[in-house]
Simulated scan of single mutants.
Amino acid sequence: MSGPAVRPGGATHLEPSARARQAADLGERLVAAWGSWGPTMTRNARRVAFVSDRHGTPEVFVQDVVVGDEAPEPVRIRLSDDPVIRVTWSSDGEWLAMAIATDGGVKQQVWVVRPDGTDAAQIAGSRYQHAELGPWSRSGHRVVITLPSTEADQPARSYLVDPVSGDRDDLAVGELIHILDLSVEERLVVLRDGQRGHEFVVVVDRLTDESHALLADSPDGSAEIAFLRPAPASETSPLVAYVATEAGLPRRGLVAQPV
Results as ranks from 00 to 15, higher is better:
G3C: 06
V6Q: 12
P8H: 04
G10K: 04
H13S: 09
H13Y: 11
A32N: 09
A33M: 13
A33T: 10
W34E: 06
W34G: 04
T42P: 00
T42V: 06
R43P: 06
V48P: 11
A49P: 00
D53E: 09
Q63P: 07
D64C: 07
D64W: 08
V66F: 02
V67S: 09
G68T: 05
G68I: 11
A71W: 03
P72S: 05
E73I: 03
V75H: 02
V75T: 12
R76P: 05
I77F: 05
R78V: 12
R78H: 15
D81H: 07
P83M: 03
R86I: 05
S90T: 07
D92G: 02
G93E: 07
A99I: 04
A99L: 08
I100G: 00
I100D: 03
D103R: 08
D103M: 09
G105P: 05
V112E: 03
R114C: 06
G117V: 02
A121F: 12
A121K: 10
S126I: 10
Q129E: 12
A131H: 11
A131F: 02
P135W: 01
S139H: 09
H141I: 07
P148I: 04
P148A: 06
S149Q: 14
D153L: 14
Q154A: 13
Q154C: 10
R157N: 12
R157W: 00
S158R: 01
S158L: 04
L160H: 09
L171Y: 00
V173C: 11
E175D: 11
I179G: 07
V184W: 11
L188K: 02
L188P: 06
L191E: 02
G194Y: 01
Q195R: 12
Q195K: 11
H198P: 07
V203N: 08
R206L: 08
D209Y: 12
S211M: 13
L214K: 05
D220F: 07
G221Y: 03
E224F: 15
I225R: 12
P230K: 11
P232F: 07
A233L: 11
A233S: 11
V243Q: 05
E246V: 06
V255D: 09
A256I: 09
A256Y: 00
A256H: 00
